[in-house]
Amino acid sequence: MRRRLSSRLFATYLFLAMWIGASGCGSSSPESKNSGGAAHSKRTVCLLPKIKGISYFTSCHRGAVEAADELGDIELIYDGPIDGDPKKQAEMIEQWTVDGVDVICVAPNAPDVVANAMREARAAGIHVITWDADGTADSRSFFVNQATAESIGRGMVKAMVDDLGPDAEGDVVIISSDATSANQNAWIDVMKPALAESRLRLATIKYPGENASNALADAKDVLQKYEALKGIFGISSVAFPGAAEGVEQAGKSGQVLVTGLSTPNDMRRYVKNGTVKSVVLWNTIDLGYLTVRVASALARGDLKEGATTFDAGRLGTLRVVGDHVVLGDIIVFTRDNIDQYDF
């Protein structure tokens, strides 16, 4: 009897110990300082990416850290769903709202899904801004506008048409993410009419999801299928390198052009070997930097509705149009200028 009881107790305590051990293993991390509203000397800024763990958002984070270090009174929290689930984004916003942070900067992966949580955060007196992609109008006070869906979609089509030459005819294919991906669908809605104005025909749209093997496979399949294929748009962080790799492996570098959105570091190899002529993006480090600058100004009350200019530290004075803080236009990275950028 005694042995039975003691082994049960032992098991229970082992369970406890394992659990506490498991949750305690992160306690040495630098972010472990609790931010629960007690530290008023520092302002807490939460930076919420669409997906945590991909290089695009990691480079934005670099810029954000730079700004936070410069400003000195910012406690920066960078967290987001590792699987890119917009539902989890909304839940993180709700948790931060309860924590009473000062500013929440959201890169909405699906503007509709996070809108309610953002409105509630605003109602609780928290400044909410969007960056990277805009949310619904009443869910945020400012949008750090590096590019709109309109300019991204048109920019990609323009890059393709410019690279192929204005008289080029033939097929193009879009490789997207999932059929339900809100951002990609918004870009596609812009790209379709833009393509209709050119002489290129949109042959099909493939949906490989966030799966690199599928993206590579889809690229190779469309290369085999469409003989008149002139270009592929890879419009997710997985699809673009996947499409470029597919074209390179098929030995069609230079014959079929690939373009899309990506950080220069991820695509440098393909730009150098001619598979990709143009990479469309913006300066992600500046984007992260500006987002934290705007967040800080909002928290201090330096940035108010109706402002027309914004002093953005090392970026100089930027325009504010309506409720958009304008970072500048998209950058097209080519073989000539890509080595000037490291992110």
């Binding site: 763990g53 991909i54 590579l216 390198p241």
Partner: peptide
């Protein structure tokens, strides 16, 4: 064969 190694491999 893939362009890069990322955390999302094998999803």
């Amino acid at each position: 064969r893939l362009p890069k190694i990322e955390a999302g491999i094998g999803v």
